[in-house]
Amino acid sequence: MYWLQYWYAFPVAVVTATLAMSSGIGGGLLFAPFFMFVLHLTPEQSMGTSLLTEVFGMGTAFINYYRMRLINFKVGGLLILGSVPGALIGAILINLHLIDALVIKLLFGAVITILAFAIILRKSSEENQGSIQEQTAGLVLGKLSTGKKVRMVLLSFLAGLGVGTLALGSGEINTPQLVNTGFTPKVAIPTSVFVMVVTVITATSVYVLKGQPVLGLALYTCSGVVVGAKLATLLIHKFRDKVLRWWLFGIFLLVGISIFVKIFQS
């Protein structure tokens, strides 16, 4: 019966992964609050299960995007220089209990609410780095100034820190910064997914070594995100950016507000 306890997490994972992978955000943005506030898991269990789930979802999306030749690996490698150290530091801070659970919940509410409005206020750059074939080539990296490269690495470090501590942050930061650098979303999203795969695996290893993921729950969420990731890669060319932004705005704002309500009720 233990393995049937969380059967309803499968459809939740399918929907969440479809939305996340088609927009370049981390599924942990919705998974971790769901685990923590709905299923009442500990912060460590929530983070561990959420990150393990993301490994399967992002891994599937990465394979599909790779086959579609939509990833710029050199630019992604630059972002990984910042995100991996950030993810390790964040995961260690959580597991050493250097951050209080209430602080994590408050951060969840604040970050998610801010991200909700950032999605609507953010404007895509009119400038671009050429055709999709040119944007996925290594030559694009050479066009970026040193200052812009340093800024991208620093922002990616912050993104990795978010992954390790809150199971979110990498895609939410890296996708918009790639778009604002001049990449079309059709390249920015897959490249961000590549960075998220490496970053999330790094953070997940810390939680798995301590046995924190809830395996009965992960059975359903991991299989669900595999299905969702496949759907997302099929839909990436069909989503209207404006409609998707307003949809995500509503979801994130609702989650953020519900978190604050839960905190003040407790």
Rank of each mutant, 00 (worst) to 15 (best):
S145F: 02
L98Y: 12
L154V: 14
S170C: 15
G182L: 00
A101G: 11
I173P: 08
F157W: 06
G162F: 08
S145Q: 12
I120T: 11
S125D: 12
T136S: 03
V179A: 03
I173D: 08
L93V: 05
G169K: 03
S124N: 14
K143C: 04
I104W: 06
L154K: 07
N180I: 09
T113I: 15
T184R: 13
N128R: 10
L115N: 14
L166S: 05
F183E: 01
V153Y: 12
L106N: 10
F108H: 08
E172M: 08
P185T: 06
K143Y: 04
M152T: 10
N174Y: 02
D100H: 13
P185R: 07
L139W: 03
L98M: 15
P185W: 06
N128D: 15
F108E: 00
I173T: 12
K105G: 07
S124G: 13
M152D: 07
P185Q: 11
K149Y: 09
R151P: 01
N128S: 13
N128L: 02
L178G: 03
V103F: 11
N95L: 14
Q129Y: 09
F117K: 12
V140T: 07
V150N: 10
L115P: 02
R151I: 15
E127Y: 14
L115H: 00
V111K: 04
S124F: 06
G109W: 02
I99G: 08
S131R: 06
K123T: 11
S170H: 07
T184K: 14
N180W: 05
V187D: 01
L139Q: 13
N174Q: 12
K105L: 04
G171E: 01
I94Q: 12
E127W: 10
F183D: 05
I92S: 11
P176G: 07
I92A: 13
V179Q: 03
L158R: 01
R122S: 15
V111Y: 13
I104H: 09
E126T: 11
G130K: 03
V140K: 01
V103G: 00
F117G: 05
P185K: 04
L121W: 09
T136E: 03
L158Y: 04
S124P: 11
